[in-house]
Amino acid sequence: METRIVTLAAFHIVGYRIEATVEEFEAELRQSHYDKLIEKKGEIKHRKNDQVLLMQIYPSHEGFDAKVDPFTHVLCYEVDKLEDVPSEMITHHVPARSYVTCTHRGLESDIGDTYDYIYGQWLEDAGLVPECYDFEIWDERYQPESVNNEIDVYVALQS
């Protein structure tokens, strides 16, 4: 798996916040909120593009396990400005940060293997520490049920 470190400027997102475990999110909440976000995208002013982001924000307490503990999922779009936000959506500022990034190729249901590699092996081998969030970019290559699916994964790194 090809990984690289990139630095991204700060950005803003607008979308739906969901508190759930991975299993709860994947079982029903992801699809229902994704469909709702796509349906409402015309109401999100200042949207930069049509790429959906899945931002995942984790608690910073020791012993947190993303596979069993609930955490924050935000299905969203990147925006230029935080104005005229639909009332049922949240805004979030993402600071400038360095990330390890790679592209998950294959079924979305197998993306856990990509995260296991980054968090379990790559970060340790590189001697780097993750920040408490990551995100995925779902663009025109996003075909969750297809082996041709591609999702760009970004794991924030502590400075």
Rank of each mutant, 00 (worst) to 15 (best):
R4H: 04
T7L: 01
L8P: 06
H12M: 08
H12L: 10
H12R: 13
I13W: 09
I13F: 09
V14W: 11
V14T: 09
Y16C: 05
I18G: 01
E19H: 15
E24N: 09
F25M: 08
F25G: 01
A27Q: 15
E28K: 14
Q31H: 10
D35F: 02
K36D: 11
L37W: 03
L37I: 08
L37Q: 03
I38E: 13
E39W: 11
E39F: 13
E43W: 07
I44T: 03
K45S: 14
H46K: 07
D50G: 05
L53D: 02
L53R: 12
M55S: 06
Q56N: 15
Q56S: 13
P59W: 09
P59E: 09
F64G: 02
A66Y: 11
K67Q: 11
V68A: 08
F71W: 11
V74G: 08
V74P: 03
L75H: 04
C76A: 15
V79E: 07
V79S: 02
D80A: 10
D80N: 13
K81H: 13
K81D: 11
E83W: 05
D84W: 06
M89S: 03
H92M: 15
V94I: 15
S98I: 09
S98V: 09
V100Q: 03
V100R: 00
V100T: 05
C102T: 15
H104I: 07
H104R: 04
G106Y: 06
E108F: 14
I111P: 01
D116V: 11
D116T: 13
Y117W: 04
Y117N: 00
I118D: 03
I118G: 00
Q121N: 07
Q121E: 14
Q121C: 04
W122I: 03
W122K: 07
E124P: 01
L128R: 10
L128T: 00
P130Q: 15
P130Y: 12
C132G: 04
Y133D: 06
I137D: 04
W138K: 05
W138L: 14
W138N: 08
R141H: 15
Y142C: 06
E145H: 10
E145P: 01
V147K: 12
V147S: 10
N148W: 07
D152R: 06
V153Y: 07
V155I: 12
A156E: 12
L157T: 07
S159N: 04
